[in-house]
């Protein structure tokens, strides 16, 4: 994926907060020396304000502080560089799946809480997969929400791929079964499965999703990837979301959407640290091209502010 464009959009979105880390650190520097307590407090507050969370922030800052002390780093660019490295390293522990290209998975199960952008993400992935020469169909397994099937059908028309559907209220597992049967019969490469948004705390709805995955796993002979779609505005509850969806379904990667606002999506740092679930894609806009493979370096740079990234690189 071309880096320049999305990185610019990512940073321009984040810059809009007028409070990127670099600006704050410069402010802190004018009042105190880099490496002073006040300086590190500013760093902590910036990460917390990006939704990284108290626990992950504390551990990152402690590590960077120790490194700075041991290596005698005092200049701003050294310190922000170290910070960026630590964040990127903590995000890049495991490579995520790429579902928009290659043989890989036949079925791609897309799950998440309500309103995170599952259907839009599917449309974007489907378009990219088609552009990469794959034969794609969509499975309308959100049979709960009013007009969800119509929404997916509209996307199917725009993207140019068929949608396998039942009527509203039908068993989502049955939709998935039919979609994968159709895929095998027609030599389809990729089936993107749209599921109903659900809060991770509803045990029965999570059980329903487990059943959907069991069917998809069986009918795809285990060639399945599960993506959890998470909104960048999500706060600390993102950890609970990731934990419970992962326990129920074993999540392969997170899709972080809506990064084109002012939210920074720092919760994925905490999730990776706590649960080891990598980020696969980030969404930075409305069009299909605005969904990008995740790059830990660039994300870390955007998280701590682009100026800092420039200084550090």
């Amino acid at each position: 994926m071309a880096a320049g464009g999305w990185f610019d959009r990512l940073t321009s979105g984040m810059l809009k907060t007028r409070e990127n880390l670099t600006g704050r650190l410069k402010g802190a520097l004018s009042r105190s020396a880099p490496g002073s307590n006040e300086f590190w407090e500013e760093v902590e507050e910036s990460l917390i304000s990006a939704d990284v969370g108290v626990a992950a922030t504390t551990s990152i800052v402690e590590e960077v502080r120790r490194e700075a002390r041991e290596q005698g780093m005092t200049a701003l660019d050294e310190l922000t560089g170290a910070l960026k490295r630590h964040i990127a390293a903590s995000l890049g522990s495991r490579a995520a799946v790429d579902v928009a290209r290659g043989e890989g998975s036949l079925a791609v199960l897309v799950v998440g809480v309500n309103g995170t952008g599952k259907t839009t993400t599917i449309a974007k992935l489907a378009r990219q997969a088609r552009e990469n020469g794959l034969k794609v169909i969509l499975a309308a397994a959100d049979t709960f929400r009013a007009a969800a099937i119509e929404q997916l059908e509209e996307w199917g028309r725009r993207v140019g791929c068929d949608v396998v559907k039942h009527e509203r209220g039908a068993d989502p597992a049955a939709v998935v079964y039919d979609a994968l049967q159709a895929a095998r019969a027609r030599g389809i490469d990729r089936v993107f499965i749209d599921t109903a948004g659900r809060l991770h705390t509803y045990v029965n709805l999570m059980e329903e999703l487990k059943k959907v995955k069991r069917v998809a796993e069986r009918e795809s002979q285990g060639r399945i990837a599960t993506l959890l779609v998470m909104d960048a505005t999500t706060g600390q509850n993102g950890i609970a979301q990731a934990k419970l969806f992962d326990e129920a379904l074993s999540v392969d990667a997170i899709v972080l959407t809506k990064l084109d606002g002012t939210a920074k999506g720092g919760i994925v740092v905490a999730i990776e640290q706590d649960l080891g679930i990598p980020v696969g894609y980030v969404g930075v806009g409305e069009t299909a091209e605005d969904l990008h493979s995740f790059d830990p370096q660039e994300f870390a740079a955007a998280l701590i502010g682009s100026e800092a990234a420039e200084i550090a690189s």
């Binding site: 990006a50 309103g115 909104d231 999500t234 706060g235 606002g261 002012t262």
Partner: peptide, 12 residues
């Protein structure tokens, strides 16, 4: 406003 919103709620 989504109850799950994080720090960005103030900007919004």
């Amino acid at each position: 406003v989504d109850a799950m919103t994080g720090q960005d709620a103030v900007n919004v």
